[in-house]
């Protein structure tokens, strides 16, 4: 059986569908900062503090995007992304957020090529950089 052809991008467009965004980080202050940036755009946010928690939420809810910390106490962020790409039918856009990796890190590039993440954000980031990964141009964000 042939699968139904998908739209040009396999990922949801967060703006079009009014689905919440999942933030995964074991550091509550980090979740606070990211949530605040996203909520300032009128978007809804849900947080998870561990890899297991994130996987559970991903399989039990629909999300337009995931901001994923690379190092979680119970598993690697990339492992969460890998599981999500298998478990979740409608794949959300996954942005890896990390202070452990750097932007041209082979691990990061490999994950992008593999398609389990779509973007990478190095900690510390500017709020504009984060908004850009949402698919907004910064001009729109300001408006």
């Amino acid at each position: 059986m042939v699968k139904a052809p998908r739209s040009s991008s396999p990922y949801r467009s967060c703006k079009a569908m009014n689905l919440p965004i999942l933030i995964v980080d074991d550091e509550p202050d980090m979740c606070w900062a990211i949530s605040h940036i996203i909520e300032s755009q009128g978007l809804h946010v849900i947080t998870a503090y561990s890899g297991e928690d994130a996987c559970f939420k991903l399989t039990h809810g629909e999300f337009s995007m995931v901001f994923l910390d690379a190092k979680l106490p119970d598993m690697d962020g990339l492992e969460v992304a890998r599981r999500a790409s298998v478990l979740v039918q409608e794949k959300p856009r996954v942005v890896l957020v990390s202070g452990y990796h750097y932007y041209d890190d082979p691990v990061v590039r490999h994950a992008m090529v593999e398609g389990i993440i779509c973007d990478f954000l190095a900690k510390p980031f500017t709020n504009k950089q984060l908004l850009r990964t949402l698919g907004y141009s910064t001009d729109i964000a300001k408006a």
């Binding site: 202050d29 605040h36 990390s98 202070g99 452990y100 510390p124 980031f125």
Partner: peptide
């Protein structure tokens, strides 16, 4: 070094974002 990088960049990222909120 790896562990240290991760652990220092987290608070740096929080500071950075909070500082940017302040100028809004």
């Amino acid at each position: 070094a790896g562990g240290i990088a991760h652990e220092i960049r987290n608070p740096l990222a929080v500071c950075s974002s909070a500082a940017q909120f302040l100028v809004e």
